[in-house]
C-alpha cells in the first residue's frame, strides 16, 4: 500500500516537469515582451528592465534560473505588483480560495451523493424525474451564469443575502459564492451517483443480498454504497479542476480577493510571471490531489489493492 503510494508519487514528477516546461515555453514563446503594450520606453530603460528580470539571457538559462527558484519555492517577481514576489501573492490569496473551494466541494459531495442515491432508489418516480431534470439544468448552466443570476435575485432584488464580499462580515458572505461554485458539481455528482447506484442495484450481488433478506437500508449501507461511490471518486479529480476553474469566475463576480481574481487580473494585465506561477501552482495542486484520489481508490477497491 505504502509502496503503491510512493510509486504513484514518483510517477507524478515527470507530469509536473512537463507542466512546468510547457507553461514556461508558452509564456516565453509569446510575441512581444511583457512591457510592450504600454507607452514606448527609452531603449536604455528597456534594457535595464530586461536585465533586471533576466530577459536578456538565452531561454535555457532563464529556464534553469526559474527551475532553481521553483525548487526553493520562489516563483520570481511579479511584473505588475512590483513590490511582491509571485510566491508572496499566492501565499496571501490562496487560503481564501482554498476555503471557498473546500466548502463547495464538501457541499457538492454531500448534496450530490444524497440526491443521486435518492433518485436511484426512487427510480422512474416523480421525485427521480424532478431531481434529474434539475441536475440536467445544473450541468447545463455555467457558473458564470448561475452566479450573477443568483446575485440578481437573492441579493439585489430580494436582498436576502449579501451580494458583494467587501463590506460584509461573517459566514453569510460565503453562502452565495459557495452555492454558485457547488451547483454544477452537485448536478454532475448527482447524475453520476444515480447512474452508478442504479448499475450496482441491478447487479447480481445485490440480488443475492435481497435473497438473504436484507432490507433496502442495509443493502445500500453494506453492499451498494461502496461500489457505487467508485465513479464519484474517480470524478473527484476533474471536479477539483472544475472547482478551481469556477473559482476564477466566482471570485471575479463577487469581488473576492482570492487566487482566482489575481489570476484573471494577471491574465488581462499580461503579468506573465504571475500567470505562469499560478498555473504551475494550480497544476501541482491538481496533480497532487489526483494522486490522493488514486490512492483512496486503491484503498476502497480490494481488486486494485493487491497489485
Amino acid at each position: 500500500m505504502l509502496r503503491y503510494a510512493l510509486l504513484r508519487l514518483l510517477g507524478a514528477i515527470p507530469t509536473l516537469l512537463l507542466v512546468i516546461v510547457l507553461a514556461f515555453l508558452m509564456v516565453h514563446a509569446a510575441p512581444g515582451g511583457p512591457f510592450d503594450a504600454e507607452r514606448a520606453l527609452p531603449a536604455e530603460i528597456e534594457a535595464n528592465i530586461a536585465a533586471a528580470y533576466h530577459l536578456d539571457e538565452p531561454l535555457y538559462q532563464q529556464f534553469v534560473r526559474y527551475l532553481k527558484g521553483l525548487v526553493q519555492g520562489d516563483l520570481g517577481p511579479s511584473y505588475r505588483y512590483r513590490d511582491h514576489t509571485v510566491s508572496e501573492l499566492i501565499a496571501t490569496a490562496f487560503p481564501l480560495s482554498l476555503k471557498l473551494g473546500a466548502m463547495a466541494m464538501l457541499l457538492a459531495l454531500i448534496v450530490g451523493v444524497a440526491a443521486g442515491s435518492l433518485a436511484a432508489l426512487r427510480r422512474n418516480t416523480l421525485s427521480d424525474r424532478v431531481l434529474m431534470m434539475l441536475a440536467m439544468t445544473g450541468i447545463s448552466i455555467p457558473v458564470f451564469v448561475i452566479a450573477p443570476v443568483l446575485v440578481l435575485f437573492l441579493a439585489v432584488r430580494l436582498q436576502w443575502l449579501p451580494a458583494g464580499w467587501s463590506g460584509n462580515e461573517g459566514a453569510a458572505r460565503f453562502l452565495l459564492p459557495v452555492i454558485a461554485l457547488a451547483l454544477p458539481q452537485i448536478a454532475y455528482i448527482a447524475r453520476l451517483t444515480r447512474a452508478s447506484m442504479i448499475d450496482v442495484l441491478a447487479s447480481d450481488f445485490v440480488r443475492t443480498a435481497r435473497a438473504q433478506g436484507l432490507g433496502t437500508a442495509a443493502i445500500v449501507r453494506y453492499h451498494a454504497l461502496k461500489p457505487a461511490m467508485l465513479p464519484v471518486l474517480s470524478y473527484l479529480g476533474p471536479a477539483i479542476a472544475a472547482i478551481l476553474t469556477g473559482s476564477v469566475v466566482v471570485e471575479e463576480i463577487f469581488g473576492i480577493p482570492g487566487l482566482g481574481q489575481f489570476f484573471v487580473r494577471g491574465a488581462l494585465n499580461r503579468d506573465y510571471t504571475l500567470v505562469l506561477g499560478i498555473v504551475i501552482f494550480y497544476a501541482t495542486l491538481v496533480v497532487l490531489l489526483n494522486l490522493v484520489v488514486d490512492i483512496l481508490y486503491g484503498a476502497i477497491d480490494p481488486r486494485i489493492r493487491r497489485r
Partner: peptide, 20 residues
C-alpha cells in the same frame, strides 16, 4: 492520463494571454 490530470483550461488561458 497525464494530460487528464492537468487543469487544462489554465493552459488555454495562458495561451490566450501569450498570443494574439
Amino acid at each position: 492520463d497525464t494530460l487528464y490530470a492537468l487543469p487544462f483550461i489554465f493552459f488555454v488561458i495562458l495561451l490566450m494571454v501569450a498570443f494574439e
